[in-house]
């Protein structure tokens, strides 16, 4: 077993185990940290799938951005006290039933299909980041601009929603 194969299975095992632990854990803070572990392992898998740019974006946005926002959210929605925030579980049986049903349905479909590469054994010879940049500004120009507009709307909407400043006219 080569090193790359070992790393692939290692990252897959880390992602799967941290996701299982996220479903079991009761402390919200540990849940946020487990989600970040899972997302970083997914970034490693993206590198092994020849998607380096997506991997770096994943690390920057999730570990740098979303983790900070989620931890702020946890700290702002808990009353300041010594005991950690513990989450109750409800509808455990029906949730397990739906999740196992979903997983078995998906894996059944996967076992019936067979996916073969169009060009067997070819590796991307070009620089992935350069290709992504060029196609973002040529073929995908309109979706790129719309995504920028969406980010602006989300920025304004989140700051307006989260602020609790009263109007001065009242």
């Amino acid at each position: 077993m080569s090193l790359v194969t070992f790393m692939f299975y290692f990252f897959e095992a880390v992602a799967a185990l941290s996701a299982v632990a996220l479903a079991v854990v009761r402390n919200v803070f540990y849940g946020a940290l487990l989600l970040v572990v899972c997302l970083l392992a997914l970034a490693g898998i993206y590198v092994l799938a020849f998607a380096e740019f997506i991997a770096v974006t994943q690390i920057l946005i999730y570990a740098g951005g979303i983790l900070v926002v989620i931890i702020f959210g946890i700290m702002l929605t808990t009353k300041i006290s010594q005991k950690p925030l513990v989450v109750e579980h409800s509808y455990v049986m029906s949730g397990l039933l739906v999740a196992i049903g979903c997983f078995s349905l998906l894996s059944m479909v996967l076992s019936k299909e067979s996916f073969t590469p169009s060009a067997q054994g070819t590796l991307p010879a070009v620089n992935s980041a350069q290709t992504i940049g060029v196609s973002l500004f040529s073929k995908y120009m309109l979706p790129f601009e719309v995504a920028g507009l969406l980010l602006l709307i989300a920025l304004i909407g989140a700051s307006v929603l989260a602020s609790n400043i009263k109007s001065r006219k009242e």
Partner: peptide, 25 residues
């Protein structure tokens, strides 16, 4: 298969957890 497992676990978390931040996770 890993993606299917992660998707089902996310569904399980959304159904069972009784906290809005956990549902976002």
């Amino acid at each position: 298969l890993l993606a299917a497992l992660l998707f089902s676990l996310g569904l399980l978390i959304i159904i069972t957890k009784r906290n809005t931040i956990m549902i976002l996770l």
